[in-house]
Amino acid sequence: MLTDWLWVVFTLIASAAQTARNSMQKELTTTLGTAGATHVRFLYGLPFSILFLMGISLVEGSPANVLDWTYLGWTAGGGLAQILATGLMLAAMRTHSFVVTITYTKIEPVLVLMFAAIFLNELPTPVAMAGVFITTAGVMLMSWPSKGSGNGWLVTTCLGLGAGAGFAVSATFYRGGILSLPEGSFVLNASTTLAVALAIQSAVILLYLVVFDRRVLVELARSWRASLPAGFLGALASQFWFFAFAIQSASLVRALALVEILFAQVVSRRIFRQISTKREVAGTLLVVGGVLIILLAAT
Rank of each mutant, 00 (worst) to 15 (best):
S249P: 01
S146C: 06
G184P: 00
T95W: 13
S15K: 02
S23R: 07
T86N: 11
L285E: 03
L72D: 06
M140R: 00
A168M: 04
M129C: 05
V169W: 02
Q25C: 12
T19L: 12
I83G: 06
E183T: 12
F242Y: 12
R273I: 08
P63Q: 04
A197G: 08
L188P: 00
F272P: 01
F10P: 11
F98W: 11
M24T: 07
A298F: 01
E280F: 13
G176E: 06
T38C: 00
A171M: 10
G176R: 06
V266H: 02
T277Q: 10
D213A: 07
V8F: 13
W7C: 08
T31E: 08
A37N: 00
L28A: 06
G79C: 05
C158T: 15
N121I: 07
F48S: 10
V288N: 02
T103K: 13
A246T: 03
G234Y: 10
V204W: 15
V291R: 08
A230V: 03
T135D: 03
G176V: 12
E122P: 07
V216S: 12
F48Q: 00
A81Y: 01
W74C: 09
R225A: 05
A221R: 10
P145T: 09
A137S: 05
A20R: 01
T86I: 09
Q265C: 11
G289S: 10
L120Q: 12
V132G: 04
Q201Y: 10
M24P: 00
F240Y: 14
S180A: 15
G290E: 08
P229C: 04
L123V: 13
Q201G: 11
T34K: 10
L256G: 01
A230I: 06
T95H: 14
Y208Q: 12
I134W: 01
I200P: 04
N121R: 15
T299G: 09
T19F: 02
H96I: 13
R222Q: 08
L28H: 04
V127T: 11
S62Y: 07
F212L: 13
V196K: 04
I247E: 06
S202L: 15
T156V: 14
D4R: 15
V216T: 14
R270H: 14
R214P: 06
G283Q: 14
V267F: 07
M24I: 03
A197T: 05
L67D: 00
A244E: 07
W153D: 11
R254N: 11
A116I: 12
A64H: 03
L161W: 04
R94S: 11
W153G: 03
A128M: 14
T156R: 14
